[in-house]
Design a protein around this nucleic acid. Structure first.
Lengths: 108, 108
DNA sequence: TGACTATATTCTTAATTACGAATATAGTAT
DNA sequence: ATACTATATTCGTAATTAAGAATATAGTCA
């Protein structure tokens, strides 16, 4: 039972554990965005972007609405963005540690 | 440049995107824990646990201290736990949506 | 209707990741 | 030293994931 839950949680992380998907989520951060814009901004193949969007959609992290010919995507849960912010915070701390270690070495 | 950063971020998610590693992090949530306990509690192969710990260590998410023959691990950044809590919150919301959808269907 | 546009899906191949088995290492105790 | 214990590492194989190319679909406009 517990294993099922950790497995569901890890599926969420798997869904966002790809540079392109992180970039897509950050692009969607503040507003609903057209697929065409994502393709243009990230400079990627259409089919590739579509596949990554499908993975995020399947995990129910984003939803889409049709607007004429276009499809607009948006993030469903604000927590997703908070998670991204926290990762940035961790990265900053890790960077500071590394810098401190370098300074420490340089002093010798 | 931006790509490097998203790629670093996604590496963090990759590191925790595995049921066993989520379970390990949850086990480490409140205190420092011996590897032997992790193995016993999760009921996994020693080498498997060790490999998963190595991945989390490499990403600088956990640190270890030797205590006699044992090695104790702990989480380096409290944000990691907050991220796990947020994922739970997202999962709860997703579950509620699913239940609402089922109720909606049943009503017809 | 037929042509067109935006997006999605399928297929194939290459790359990455996972896991058990075997082995190595480092510390402790005798 | 030798034996033992806890953990780490390496290796080979199986499974999963990624990406481009080709194709399909669905909606729009003439």
């Amino acid at each position: 039972m517990e294993e099922i839950i950790t497995s569901i949680k890890s599926n969420f992380f798997k869904a966002i554990a790809h540079p392109t998907r992180v970039a897509i989520l950050e692009r969607l951060a503040d507003q609903e965005v057209c697929v065409c814009e994502i393709i243009a901004d990230l400079g990627l193949e259409q089919s590739n972007v579509s596949q990554h969007l499908a993975i995020l959609r399947k995990q129910n992290i984003i939803t889409s609405t049709k607007v004429g010919l276009q499809v607009h995507y948006r993030i469903k849960y604000p927590e997703v963005l908070e998670i991204l912010k926290m990762v940035e915070s961790i990265m900053t701390q890790q960077l500071e540690e590394t810098q401190a270690a370098i300074r420490h070495l340089a002093r010798k």
